[in-house]
Simulated assay, not measured.
Amino acid sequence: MFRDRSLTPTEAVRLAALGGLMERPRRYGELAEEIRFFTARVVGPSLDLLGSSLELLLIEGLAEETGAGGAAEDREFAVTDAGRRNFHQLMDAVLRAPLNDMSRLVLLLKMRFLVLLDPEAQEDQLDMIADLVRTERARLDELAKEYADRPMAEWLAFDVEQADKRLAWLEAQMDALVG
Rank of each mutant, 00 (worst) to 15 (best):
M1Y: 03
L143W: 11
S103R: 02
M22P: 01
L143D: 13
T10E: 04
E34T: 15
E30F: 11
I129S: 11
T10L: 04
K165H: 13
M22I: 04
R26G: 11
E30W: 10
L105F: 01
M174E: 09
E65Y: 13
A97I: 01
V13F: 04
L7R: 01
L50P: 04
D124F: 08
E73G: 05
D149V: 08
E142F: 12
L108E: 05
F113T: 01
A176I: 00
A148Q: 02
M1W: 03
L49K: 02
A148N: 03
Y28H: 11
S46I: 03
D74G: 09
G70V: 02
H88M: 09
D149E: 09
G61S: 13
A121R: 13
V160D: 08
E146F: 05
D92M: 09
Y28N: 07
S52K: 03
E60C: 10
A63K: 10
F37M: 15
P119M: 08
E73T: 03
G29Q: 13
F2P: 00
E23C: 01
L116A: 04
S103Q: 01
L170G: 12
E123V: 06
E136I: 12
D149P: 00
E120G: 07
R134F: 06
T135G: 10
E136S: 11
A93K: 12
R3W: 00
A63V: 09
G44W: 15
N100H: 08
L107R: 06
A163W: 12
L167F: 02
R75W: 11
N86D: 14
L108M: 09
M91D: 12
L126K: 14
A168D: 14
G51W: 00
A12R: 04
A16T: 04
W169G: 06
D131I: 12
T135S: 12
L15A: 04
R75T: 06
R36T: 15
D101I: 05
V42Q: 07
R134K: 11
Q162D: 14
G29Y: 07
R104Y: 07
G51L: 03
S52Y: 06
L170E: 10
M91L: 07
T39D: 08
V42N: 05
V94Q: 15
M111R: 05
R166S: 14
F158Y: 14
R75N: 04
A63G: 09
A17L: 03
L47G: 09
L132E: 13
K110P: 02
K165I: 07
V160A: 04
L132S: 09
D81S: 14
D159A: 07
A168V: 13
A130P: 11
L7P: 03
M128A: 15
D124K: 13
M174N: 04
R139W: 07
I35W: 15
A63N: 10
E171T: 06
L54F: 05
Q173R: 13
M174L: 04
V13Q: 03
D101W: 06
L108Q: 05
D81R: 15
L62H: 10
E76L: 09
M1I: 00
L177Q: 05
F87A: 00
L140C: 11
L18D: 00
R5W: 12
K110D: 02
D4S: 03
L62T: 09
E161I: 03
R137I: 12
